[in-house]
C-alpha cells in the first residue's frame, strides 16, 4: 500500500472509531447524524461553487437561501453549519419546505429522500427557476437534479449533471466538477 493509501485506511479507521465512539445505541442515529452533518456541510459548501444569475439576488449582500424539503434533520444540521458563515460575502439562510410547497426565492434546494420516492416528478415544479437542485437517492440525477449524493462505503460522494444545471440556469465551477465522482455532461 502506498503511504497515501495507508493514510486513507488510517483515516477510515479513525472515522469508524469515531462512529463507534458515538453513542452505540444511537449508532444508527449517530451514523445517520454524521452523514446528515456531512451532507449539510456539503450543501452549504456547494454554494461556493455555484453561480446563480444576478437577478436571483436583490442586493449584493442578500443571502443565499438554501431550501430543504421534508428533511428536518438536514435543516437542523444546516442551521448549525451555516452559523456565522458567508459565501461570497453573502450570508446563508435555511428554509424548510414540505412536499406540497413550491419553493421560490431559493438558490439551492435539497429534496429529502422520502419526497422523490413518493413523487418522482416533484422536481418539475422547479423548472425554469435558477435553483441548484440536490437529491439524495440512487440515480437521483435522472429526476432532473444537478447534484446527487451517494454514499460510497463510508465516503459521501456526489455526482453532477451539467445538463440539469444548464437547464436550471445555474453554473457549476469546474473545481466542484473535479471532485465530483461523476459528471454528466450535457451531451450525455
Amino acid at each position: 500500500m502506498t503511504r497515501t493509501q495507508k493514510t486513507m485506511v488510517g483515516r477510515s479507521l479513525f472515522w469508524v472509531w469515531m462512529m463507534l465512539c458515538l453513542v452505540a445505541p444511537t449508532q444508527q442515529v449517530g451514523a445517520a447524524t454524521l452523514e446528515t452533518r456531512i451532507k449539510a456541510a456539503f450543501l452549504y459548501k456547494f454554494c461556493s461553487y455555484v453561480e446563480w444569475p444576478t437577478d436571483t439576488f436583490s442586493a449584493p449582500d442578500s443571502p443565499i437561501v438554501i431550501g430543504v424539503v421534508a428533511d428536518k434533520d438536514i435543516v437542523q444540521e444546516l442551521n448549525q453549519a451555516i452559523k456565522g458563515q458567508h459565501v461570497h460575502n453573502r450570508p446563508l439562510n435555511v428554509r424548510a419546505y414540505d412536499t406540497t410547497a413550491v419553493p421560490s426565492g431559493v438558490h439551492l434546494l435539497f429534496i429529502g429522500r422520502s419526497v422523490l420516492s413518493s413523487a418522482p416528478r416533484w422536481l418539475d415544479r422547479m423548472q425554469g427557476k435558477a435553483v441548484m437542485l440536490v437529491t439524495d437517492i440512487p440515480n437521483g440525477l435522472d429526476s432532473g437534479s444537478g447534484i446527487n449524493f451517494d454514499l460510497e462505503g463510508d465516503r459521501l460522494r456526489f455526482d453532477v449533471s451539467l445538463a440539469a444545471t444548464t437547464a436550471q440556469g445555474v453554473r457549476v465551477s469546474s473545481q466542484l466538477l473535479s471532485v465530483a465522482r461523476r459528471v454528466r455532461n450535457p451531451a450525455q
Binding site: T4, T7, M8, F42, K45, S48, Y49, R155, L156, F158, S173, Q175, L176, S178, V179
Partner: peptide, 16 residues
C-alpha cells in the same frame, strides 16, 4: 486554492 474543493469534499485523489 486549487485543493479547497478536494479538501471540502474530501477528495484526496484530486488533492494529490
Amino acid at each position: 486554492e486549487a485543493s479547497i474543493a478536494a479538501l471540502q469534499f474530501d477528495d484526496p485523489g484530486v488533492a494529490q
